[in-house]
């Protein structure tokens, strides 16, 4: 990596930070227009007007929106305190809000669930990258054969099937009927690596299947395009075996545009594989969000949204950096 590359990465990082701040402000403003009063959750039953008002004050919802945005932004940097004195609730930096319903800072809620989502997303990404690249390569190298057509037909299924349906189908077939894999729950890696993987096999497969479809098509397209390029002809003319041509010459060119894409897709998943987590009862960031939406737990909704946006932006940054590092022309 030379000085130019480093400079480019520096510029990208600065831009990223700026975008992140804007996203935080925007997210907060958008959710401030939420139809339901978030203070209702903290009001209890029966909810009287004065109790509602005191909940608003406590949570800071009585402030004008720009003050709320400012408090939120400073909270991320310096932490926040809700209420006063011994009864106050502290939310340490980076504070993404405090869930009154769950009685916990949103940051710690996300932190406790991120490993689940990360396990799910990263495992699936590895699987779909391997599967997608392999399928795409086979498809391209065996173009027009039964294998090619079969793979392409499968990708159509993968691209169009909703994950909810695939997840349930997987649970039904491999969980209940064949009884091969567990259908629910997450076991932390630290508890038992084997159980961890064992519980994740099915969700990995479902997520990987859906994403691999896109990659298989992409890899097939890039592969066919590259196989027709002059450098391949040149390599063959030098007496390189086809195996060497594919693995040493074509594959790097095919993967160079694909790998940054994995970073992007992975980033999107790390913000919460909402449906998959729900179907497989995985306590990840996505299921946290889904639950919060159902309960109008606004701080959690805002916090997870900001977190997901940050992850996606970081993923973009990583993708850009990967592209810069992988392709000497950029």
């Amino acid at each position: 990596m030379n000085r130019r590359t480093l400079a480019r990465i520096g510029v990208l990082a600065t831009q990223t930070l700026l975008v992140l701040v804007i996203i935080v402000a925007l997210t907060f403003m958008v959710f401030s227009a939420w139809p339901a009063d978030p203070a209702l959750l903290a009001c209890g039953r029966p909810c009287t007007p004065d109790r509602l008002e005191s909940a608003r004050v406590f949570l800071g919802y009585d402030q004008p929106w720009y003050t709320q945005v400012w408090n939120y932004l400073t909270g991320i940097v310096a932490g926040r305190t809700f209420g006063e004195g011994a009864g106050a609730i502290h939310c340490d930096a980076p504070c993404l809000g405090y869930s009154f319903r769950l009685g916990a800072p949103v940051t710690s809620l996300i932190a406790s669930r991120a490993p689940v989502t990360a396990s799910l997303a990263i495992g699936a990404a590895v699987l779909w990258l391997l599967g997608g690249v392999l399928a795409g390569m086979v498809s391209a190298l065996r173009r027009g054969t039964f294998a090619d057509r079969g793979i392409m037909a499968l990708t159509v299924v993968g691209v169009s099937a909703p994950s909810y349906l695939l997840g349930l189908l997987g649970i039904l077939v491999f969980g209940f009927t064949l009884d091969m894999v567990p259908v629910a729950n997450y076991v932390p890696f630290s508890t038992s690596p084997i159980d961890w993987a064992w519980h994740l096999v099915l969700p990995w497969t479902v997520l990987a299947f859906i994403n691999a479809a896109v990659y298989a098509r992409l890899v097939r397209g890039h592969m066919l395009e590259n196989l027709g390029l002059d450098y391949v002809r040149m390599a063959r003319s030098l007496g390189l075996t086809e195996r060497t041509v594919i693995s040493r010459q074509v594959l790097p060119n095919v993967l160079t545009p694909v790998i940054p894409l994995v970073a992007l897709d992975l980033g999107a998943l790390l913000g919460g594989a909402v449906i998959t987590e729900r179907v497989f009862s995985m306590p990840g960031v996505g299921s946290l969000l889904m639950d919060a939406v159902g309960q109008t737990d606004l701080p959690v909704i805002v916090g997870v949204t900001v977190f997901a946006a940050a992850i996606v932006i970081l993923a973009n940054l990583v993708a850009d950096i990967l592209a810069t590092v992988l392709d000497p022309r950029i």
């Binding site: 390029l229 002059d230 450098y231 002809r233 040149m234 390599a235 063959r236 003319s237 030098l238 007496g239 390189l240 060497t244 040493r248 010459q249 790097p252 060119n253 160079t256 992988l326 392709d327 000497p328 022309r329």
Partner: peptide
Amino acid sequence: RGARVAAVFQEPMRALNPLLTIGAQFRLA
């Protein structure tokens, strides 16, 4: 190929792998 009959092409820029250094391409050849 390469050992007894070799070839050069019209577009030299496209004939080399853009992602490999010239040295790497020599090693492979």
